[in-house]
């Protein structure tokens, strides 16, 4: 088991290295010149040269790469030309916003998806089951950015219930930064109004993500449950006279858990991609928006950093799942060792 995990860990490091290499080279073969952009339109050639030297853009590509990789091994993600700060400092500032959004959405999604799938499996062909099919069919085709804008239109322009974007009301003072998670920070500050403001701003972006995840995820969970219910052991249990509830919760659910878990892991992967779109639409000051805005002005370090951070996140989740599988489903153990 330990051996297996070590292998998976080494594999994760390899994936990360590859991502770093690919994104680095891709982003440096660009025709546009970030130094010229930074210097402004009327800058002299000397100024552009100076900036180029300052950011090491005048050195040969291989040399830039070596120094980048050395820096990376020390946790240095380079300098952002746009914000004129180190990317690690920027990430430390923006990452909590992204994490807060992801965690809240994912928790809501897990609860909703689980209850929907269980209800659907208890009454196949029933109302909830039909609703899930409809949601899945239409939902997978809804572009996440369009859904976000449609929700903004509805809840901001028409109903005036919720703010259109950002993380916190502009006119209020944010609670002092302790964790960077505004929900926790406003609770620590003991300010109900700050908490309410935070939740209001969180509602629409989180809802956008949850709806999109539900469209795909619930179908998979439902299929896993229904497939499991057609197994022979279920028939045996029914024959023994066990009630449908006991069969579902004690037998079927435990067996269906690992395919559901696999699907959920994949979902988290998609979500990392979507978060850029959602952050752009809702002006959410996380790492997705940060990388996107940097990308617009040909500042690549943040884009590479986002690639590395999000891949690292994905690798970490996969590793966590590898540890969880044998605990949830003891049958998996034999595969691992």
């Amino acid at each position: 088991m330990v051996n297996f995990l070590l292998k998976r860990f080494a594999w994760g490091i390899l994936v990360l290295l590859l991502v770093a290499v690919i994104t680095f080279f891709l982003s440096r073969v660009v025709p546009a010149d970030p130094a010229a952009f930074l210097a402004g339109q009327n800058a002299s050639e000397a100024t552009v040269q100076k900036i180029r030297a300052e950011y090491g853009l005048d050195r040969p590509l291989t040399e830039q790469f070596v120094s980048y990789m050395v820096g990376l091994s020390k946790g240095d993600l380079g300098q952002s030309i746009r914000t004129r700060r180190s990317v690690s400092t920027d990430l430390a500032q923006y990452l909590p916003a992204t994490l807060e959004l992801l965690l809240v959405s994912f928790t809501i999604y897990l609860i909703a998806s689980f209850s929907l799938a269980v209800t659907a499996a208890r009454h196949p062909g029933g109302f909830v089951d039909g609703a899930i099919r409809l949601l899945t069919m239409v939902g997978t085709g809804i572009p996440v950015f369009w859904l976000g804008m449609a929700l903004q239109f509805m809840f901001f322009y028409k109903l005036h219930w919720l703010p259109i974007g950002a993380r916190f009301p502009i006119r209020e003072t944010a609670p002092p930064v302790v964790t960077g998670f505004l929900i926790i920070d406003s609770m620590l500050a003991g300010s109900p109004s700050a908490l309410l403001g935070t939740l209001k701003h969180l509602a629409l972006p989180a809802l956008t993500i949850v709806i999109n995840l539900l469209a795909v995820g619930t179908r998979l969970s439902r299929a896993a449950l229904i497939q499991e219910q057609s197994r022979l052991y279920v028939r045996t249990a029914r024959g023994k006279g066990l009630g449908p509830r006991v069969i579902l919760y004690k037998h079927v659910l435990r067996n269906a858990l690992s395919p559901i878990l696999t699907a959920t892991t994949m979902q988290f992967g998609y979500m990392i991609s979507w978060v850029i779109l959602v952050e752009v639409i809702f002006d959410w000051p996380g790492i997705g928006l940060y990388a996107y805005q940097s990308f617009q002005v040909f500042d690549y370090s943040p884009v590479i950093a986002l690639a590395i951070v999000s891949t690292a996140g994905f690798v970490l989740i996969n590793l966590l799942m590898d540890i969880l599988y044998p605990i949830i489903d003891p049958r998996v153990q034999s595969v691992g060792s």
């Binding site: 594999w11 390899l14 994936v15 590859l18 991502v19 690919i22 994104t23 891709l26 982003s27 440096r28 073969v29 660009v30 025709p31 992967g269 990392i272 991609s273 979507w274 850029i276 779109l277 990388a291 996107y292 990308f295 040909f298 690549y300 884009v303 590479i304 986002l306 690639a307 999000s310 891949t311 994905f314 690798v315 996969n318």
Partner: peptide, 21 residues
């Protein structure tokens, strides 16, 4: 193939668009 599955799709697209326009 596994390596490619670990890749964040949108970020790769950003990088490609940055390099070839």
């Amino acid at each position: 193939v596994d390596l490619f599955f670990g890749f964040p799709a949108l970020v790769l697209a950003l990088a490609v668009a940055a390099s070839i326009g």
